[in-house]
Design a protein around this nucleic acid. Structure first.
Length: 110
DNA sequence: ACTTTGACGGGAT
DNA sequence: CATCCCGCCAAAG
């Protein structure tokens, strides 16, 4: 409890709420957390998400829809595989039609 | 306590 | 959209 990482856990909490077949950006999560300028921190927090099964970090990409953190996954293209498995088309480490799959916590989660 | 880093974002070129 | 630069901020060394 006391040692619970408030910042990290917040990111995990949001990430867990990402619906299947949807993706969001670090900035969107950061903004929802009230730290819009700390989008990097979201990524960093997700860095520890590898230990959290309930945190689909593969659904979190940068604003361009590029799988920037794919290198942090076990496989070379595991992130892409997971996304494609959910119906998200990925081309050259970039999500196609990002706006179509984009899930904004500010709009959807409220 | 200081410096560097980093899964970003936005603006400028 | 490619590249460069800046800002912003917390964690790690």
């Amino acid at each position: 409890m006391a040692s619970n990482d408030n910042f990290f856990e917040r990111v995990y909490e949001i990430a867990r709420q990402i619906p299947y077949g949807r993706v969001t950006s670090y900035g969107a999560i950061a903004k929802y957390l009230g730290a819009a300028r700390s989008a990097r921190m979201v990524g960093w927090a997700l860095n520890g998400s590898s230990l959290k099964e309930d945190v689909p970090a593969h659904r979190v990409v940068n604003r361009k829809g590029i799988l920037t953190g794919k290198h942090h996954f076990q496989g070379t293209n595991l992130m892409q595989q997971l996304l494609e498995n959910e119906g998200v088309l990925v081309k050259d480490n970039q999500i196609i039609d990002l706006d179509k799959y984009f899930w904004d916590p500010m709009d959807e989660l409220l």
